[in-house]
């Protein structure tokens, strides 16, 4: 266990899998996590930002992982 919830791990793994320099858009996360609400996704992203796992890129809606 890495201390993250199942939801947080799902979101992190999707952010990690995006090869683009500007990262993945929050709406693309929503599309790929079809059962998850945007509020839940945003909450997970915020947590991951606070923990330094991810960061925003060209604006506050695109995210990249620190470990790729």
């Amino acid at each position: 266990s890495n201390g993250l919830s199942a939801t947080q791990n799902q979101v992190l793994s999707l952010i990690r899998s995006c090869p683009d320099a500007q990262g993945i858009h929050i709406h693309d996360l929503k599309q790929k996590l079809s059962g998850m609400s945007i509020a839940v996704i945003k909450q997970a992203v915020e947590f991951l930002c606070n923990e330094g796992h991810v960061f925003s890129t060209i604006d506050e809606e695109h995210f990249r992982s620190t470990d790729n």
């Binding site: 320099a21 500007q22 930002c49 606070n50 330094g52 890129t57 620190t66």
Partner: peptide
């Protein structure tokens, strides 16, 4: 499309800040 120099600068700045935050969190857990 490709990123502007300003966008690249911003991304790198945010990445460094996040890496520092990650290191801080890991240190707190020890």
């Amino acid at each position: 499309g490709s990123l502007t120099a300003e966008q690249q600068r911003r991304i790198e700045e945010n990445r460094q800040r996040a890496l520092a935050r990650r290191a801080e969190r890991l240190a707190q857990q020890e």
